[in-house]
Computed example of a mutant assay.
Amino acid sequence: MTTVTAPLAGRAIGLPAVPDPVFSGAMVGPGTAIDPVREESEAVAPVDGVIVSLHPHAYVVVDAEGRGVLTHLGIDTVQLGGEGFELLVAKGDTVTRGQAVVRWNPAAVEEAGKSPVCPVVALEATAEALTDLREAGEVAIGDTLFGWQ
Rank of each mutant, 00 (worst) to 15 (best):
140 A>K: 15
135 E>M: 06
3 T>I: 07
64 A>Y: 07
3 T>P: 01
27 M>E: 00
50 V>E: 15
80 L>E: 01
146 F>P: 01
126 T>Q: 15
138 E>P: 09
97 R>V: 15
132 D>N: 12
14 G>A: 05
91 K>C: 12
83 E>R: 10
117 V>G: 04
91 K>M: 13
84 G>Y: 00
64 A>Q: 12
145 L>S: 04
52 V>D: 12
79 Q>K: 14
99 Q>Y: 11
38 R>V: 01
26 A>W: 03
66 G>I: 07
57 H>I: 04
19 P>N: 06
18 V>P: 04
136 A>G: 14
123 L>P: 02
14 G>K: 02
116 P>N: 14
131 T>Q: 08
144 T>I: 05
142 G>I: 03
132 D>L: 07
19 P>L: 11
32 T>Y: 08
63 D>N: 12
132 D>V: 03
31 G>V: 11
111 E>Q: 15
72 H>K: 09
61 V>A: 05
140 A>V: 03
116 P>Q: 09
76 D>Y: 10
99 Q>N: 11
70 L>H: 00
121 V>D: 00
147 G>E: 00
82 G>E: 06
8 L>F: 04
15 L>C: 02
97 R>Y: 04
140 A>S: 08
148 W>P: 01
116 P>C: 13
139 V>S: 10
132 D>E: 12
134 R>N: 03
148 W>F: 05
8 L>R: 00
111 E>W: 12
75 I>P: 01
121 V>P: 00
94 T>F: 13
120 V>F: 05
83 E>K: 09
64 A>H: 09
42 E>A: 15
24 S>P: 02
1 M>T: 00
122 A>M: 05
42 E>L: 13
117 V>A: 09
31 G>T: 07
108 A>N: 08
111 E>Y: 07
44 V>Q: 05
107 A>F: 12
122 A>N: 02
116 P>T: 03
130 L>E: 01
6 A>E: 01
146 F>N: 00
78 V>E: 08
129 A>M: 10
32 T>L: 14
5 T>L: 07
90 A>P: 05
102 V>D: 11
29 G>E: 04
105 N>H: 14
115 S>G: 07
149 Q>P: 13
101 V>A: 10
39 E>F: 08
66 G>W: 10
141 I>W: 01
17 A>E: 10
97 R>C: 09
45 A>E: 05
17 A>L: 05
56 P>L: 09
137 G>N: 06
93 D>K: 11
94 T>H: 13
28 V>F: 08
26 A>M: 14
106 P>A: 12
14 G>F: 06
15 L>K: 02
44 V>E: 02
95 V>S: 10
73 L>W: 09
137 G>F: 03
52 V>L: 04
143 D>M: 11
113 G>M: 13
96 T>S: 13
11 R>D: 08
85 F>R: 00
133 L>R: 11
16 P>L: 12
71 T>Q: 15
40 E>Y: 08
117 V>S: 11
4 V>L: 02
96 T>P: 06
17 A>I: 01
33 A>P: 03
132 D>S: 06
102 V>Q: 08
5 T>G: 00
86 E>V: 07
136 A>M: 12
137 G>P: 01
41 S>H: 09
133 L>A: 06
81 G>Q: 07
12 A>H: 00
84 G>E: 00
15 L>W: 05
14 G>Y: 02
93 D>F: 11
2 T>H: 01
17 A>T: 03
72 H>C: 04
59 Y>M: 14
18 V>D: 02
43 A>C: 14
32 T>N: 14
55 H>E: 15
138 E>H: 14
